[in-house]
Amino acid sequence: MRQLVILSGKGGTGKTTVASSFIKLATAKTYADCDVDAPNLHLIGSPFPSVKQTDYFSMPKAVINANLCISCAMCRKYCRFGAIVKDKTYKVDAASCEGCGVCAFVCPAKAITMEKTKAGDLLLYSDTDNTVFSTAVLSMGSGATGLLVTQVKKQMKAASGETPLAIIDGSPGIGCPVIASLSGADMVLIVAEPSISGISDMERIIGTAQQFQVRLAVCINKYDTNLLQSSHIESYCRTRRIPFVGKIPFEPMAIKAINQGKYLVDFPCEGAKALADVFAETMDLLQAEVV
């Protein structure tokens, strides 16, 4: 099974529109939304008949037993993450706690234990034709982490059977969740935006993917909003021998499609045509033998 991960560095470039269109064009049976801070992929397409929910546990977090606590504040002194707060008694702010265990170690009263904390729900949607869609919803206060992205992908792979292609909608940024989504990727498609800030963001996500030696390709979305910057992106790719798989014009139908929860490629329009071309180029590259 080949894994195609779609990233953009910055949000709002149209990553999810591209990912959802690819899923429709590929009639992909396996896909995942790893952008768990702001999951959107489930809003496109028809609802799935069944879903399996699993608890997602993050790092065990520190819990202070108020009955044993002697209020010496050693925990607060040693905590480097500002996770110990005083509110009549000393408490751990779970959202800031990184689970390092230092407070439990230093507590003279042995009042602190590390406890498994549910941080969200892993969701695995499936259909009668063996299509699987993996995603997650975070609990309030929890953050998207590399671990969660890994669990979303693991869940997808375990349910996927013998499909040739898995499409993963990744998160914005270049940090831990993005790096986790690069693991196991056969190729990354970067959706770039033709603006000065968009190019700066694109360069940083390219730098990140290259550091992990993952195959890359770039496409431009809404290219006609700035032809000058679009041409800069194309020359950037040419100079660095990064495969450029095409450009998609700004498509007013895209908003309509999103708001109706439909795939853009189902609407006859310029954007849909261009997306189909970018898809074809990407698939050719993906299927080509890795040297």
């Binding site: 910055k10 801070d37 800031s96 975070l138 953050g143 998160s171 914005p172 940024g173 940090g175």
Partner: peptide
């Protein structure tokens, strides 16, 4: 602020 609604934003 950064995008998202998790620890960096908090």
């Amino acid at each position: 602020c950064p995008p998202g609604s998790a620890c960096l934003v908090r």
